[in-house]
Amino acid sequence: MTHPAFTPAEARQRDTFLALMWALSYPGRTATLPAGDALAGIGEALLDLETTYYTPDAALAALLARSGARRLPPDRAAYHFYPQVDAAALADIALAAVGSMLYPDDAATLIIGCRLHSGAALRLTGPGIPGEQRCQVAAAPELWSLRARSPFPTGWDVFLVDGLQVVGLPRSTRLHVDAL
């Protein structure tokens, strides 16, 4: 018996989702996204009519709008997409929902473009990490101080994207930034 068709769109969305799932399951390790525009691909895999997003980038917003998701201001959007972290992005990120003790799942998910394997050295511990995991991320250091404001289980979940490489930083990860 033949199974229902595995369409190219479904293949792409599934591969993207699996990369995100493993990135979040093993924080700090690199997972690989399918070929294409990484941020738009993540949008395709996660967004639809039932979700909301925010991005300061007009071109990316036009791509994400195709999902049918609603574009909302940064304090209300569930999925945030930042091609890079600059001062304006940090101001938006500061507004992102962190959820509550009662509903920690109301927190925003941030998808952030940045350079991996250079910049600040991070030491990660917590779920998904045997012992300690190290990784390097070139992003504004204020990102980490903003992240540190929310005690677990509140806080946002972060995907750091460099080209087709993605690193997950769930809120459960304890993060120590080594001095540059």
């Binding site: 595995f6 399951s25 799942d105 809120r171």
Partner: peptide, 26 residues
């Protein structure tokens, strides 16, 4: 649809799965 679930249901399950991994045990 592939794997029976329609694209909306599958995406919703995937979003929730990511949340579940980020908040172990919740």
């Amino acid at each position: 649809s592939y794997a029976f679930l329609d694209a909306f249901a599958r995406r919703e399950l995937r979003r929730r799965t990511l949340k579940a991994i980020a908040i172990p045990g919740y």
